[in-house]
Design a protein around this nucleic acid. Structure first.
Lengths: 346, 346
DNA sequence: TTGTAGGCGTTATCAA
DNA sequence: TTGATAACGCCTACAA
């Protein structure tokens, strides 16, 4: 027997109106929970709508003036880097948590660079596909900032307010986090520490650099900063160079988890043991930090919560809130086996 | 001087038509590169549109019958698990690569379970927000399958065709990959191996189970399967139990990378060295596998390419292609330091 | 409280 | 090749 597909034409509010013996206006009001409809009519409409399986055509809604009920997130990263850092997926999960509760959608795009990203944002806004956008990984003089400002596009920047004048920002207190890490090493008796840092082009780099130097100076520690590109290789190279210098540091602070993990291997290869010869701290606590042996002491924060927070603020901005800056929780130090008392000087 | 914001009303094709001294119909044709417009008019329209900064309102397009130019992806996973597995981010990056080239968007949602995911898909489809959906991590009798089938929603399943009858699928040949891994161990002289497996509820589990047993039997190896929930803890527990049994295996195959990594530590704690006492193989090659010491031999495949492939197939389905199954590249064994010759029997 | 009608921006139909 | 004009589905004055 040939069961023909019941070629279901879309159910519209006109259908509901006819069936419920009323007008489309009343149906619209009833369905949107507004006043201006008698309880009896409202109930009848709701019942009919449910029975007919009506569901709103978002395009029609948007066209009629409502928002797109969607926010956009463009990630300007190489796919390989994206997948390496658990940050993004966690952040997205957090964003979703906020969005789902308000039944909004998330439009995603992976762009090769900040310029392409700015272009995508412009397109999205012009075509009214999104009500606002979330911006991450800002760089100095970021093209996205100008697109968003000029287009008056609702946006929230995830990062330090200093790099996004006039926009709403949500940020973690990297300076305070860095101070914690340095003080942890100082308290363990370390006198010479090195920061293995991200490239200068990231806006947060300068903030962490300054905080590192400030905290080290305050604790009276010898300190140094070496620059990397955050890759495993550059982390290994930096660790090797630093640890084989004439007066190697006894404490190392890495700007991400991946470099800290490879440094474990590098130290081992140099015949140094962690933490008795050298202590290691990672930024960005992750599964990686927990799984390796010895476990890595790391600065961790709840990225899922950060994403949820940022999304919440974006919805506020979309609703017309004025630009403002919001501080998310400060990363806290998860102390594990990779940090210990400084070795006694030879 | 007060530069007032130029309260820009949207530029519509009506504006373009007026300025170009023609009708909206001609403008529409010209803008969409269709025939039916004289070259002169077309050029004039294009010029005016560019000058006025026109850009299409996607809602209007969708409402007028075009597609939504968007596909949907719902991830039914706990946020923590999502971020742990690099798979999803890589997959998304691949999907994007395909989508961007056809200027389509990706709508994302993170749902708590398969039922919520099915519901999200239904909503998306009813409201015409997406033209089709990508399905991953199928479970037996998956609710998403029925939603998609009943709603005649264009969809592509990423997984084995056996669990998604009638739908287009893109899959990797897990059976052949498993065979490679088992043969690798057999060639190294191992005679007793254990598979540390995913829960039975995942559709791929049975496929890998069967392939494992088949390959082990063919190579004349003693073999066993222990079940886990893929978490680090359950991996560690499984490794500990198996390795402290009276006649422990000399080769272990894990169903993901995370468990294999913790098994490294477990083996170490039991006084066993890898690979001289026990060889370890991981499914899902990842940064994790490369970074740990010793490096983990692992089955790896190009997930970014898989995502791109799946998205391509979905676009075909949206364009009306019949259901079909497509095999993506088979995972290949990345041999590293965690596998070696079997120890000589005591 | 209810219903009518116009508008949102495009696409598609159909005369001219 | 053109240009009115009618959908598309919803919202919202405005009038009854």
């Amino acid at each position: 027997m040939m069961t023909s597909v019941p070629q279901t034409r879309r159910v519209t509010i006109a259908d509901v109106a006819r069936e419920a013996q009323t007008s489309t206006a009343s149906v619209s009001y009833a369905l949107n929970g507004r006043s201006g409809v008698s309880p009896a009519t409202r109930e009848r409409v709701l019942e009919v709508a449910a029975r007919l399986g009506w569901s709103p055509a978002s395009a029609a809604r948007t066209l009629a003036g409502a928002g797109a009920d969607t926010i956009g997130l463009v990630l300007a990263k190489d796919p390989r880097d994206l997948s390496v850092e658990p940050f993004y997926m966690q952040f997205i999960a957090g964003v979703e948590a906020t969005l789902t509760s308000r039944s909004m959608g998330l439009l995603l795009e992976v762009a090769p660079d900040a310029d392409a990203e700015a272009e995508a944002i412009r397109r999205w806004h012009m075509s009214r596909r999104v009500d606002g956008v979330l911006l991450t990984d800002l760089i100095p003089d970021d093209p996205r900032i100008s697109v968003v400002s000029e287009g008056a596009i609702p946006a929230v920047v995830v990062g330090d307010p200093s790099v996004a004048a006039g926009l709403t920002t949500v940020w973690t207190n990297d300076a305070e986090a860095m101070q914690q890490a340095v003080e942890h090493l100082a308290a363990l008796g370390h006198r010479r520490i090195t920061r293995v840092a991200a490239p200068r082009r990231y806006a947060y780099t300068a903030i962490r650099d300054d905080a590192f130097e400030h905290a080290a100076r305050a604790a009276g520690l010898e300190h140094d900063i070496v620059r990397t590109d955050l890759s495993p290789d550059s982390g290994a190279a930096a660790a090797r160079t630093v640890l084989s210098s004439p007066r190697p540091p006894t404490g190392l602070l890495f700007d991400n988890d991946v470099m800290a993990v490879v440094a474990l291997t590098t130290a081992h290869e140099l015949g140094l043991s962690v933490p008795s010869d050298v202590s290691i701290i990672a930024w960005d606590d992750s599964l990686l930090c927990r799984l390796v042996t010895p476990g890595l002491t790391a600065l961790g924060h709840d990225v899922v919560a950060l994403g949820a927070h940022a999304a919440r603020r974006l919805l506020d901005v979309i609703d017309g809130a004025d630009p403002s800056t919001h501080q998310d929780a400060t990363p806290t130090l998860q102390v594990r086996a990779s940090t210990g008392r400084a070795p006694v000087e030879a």
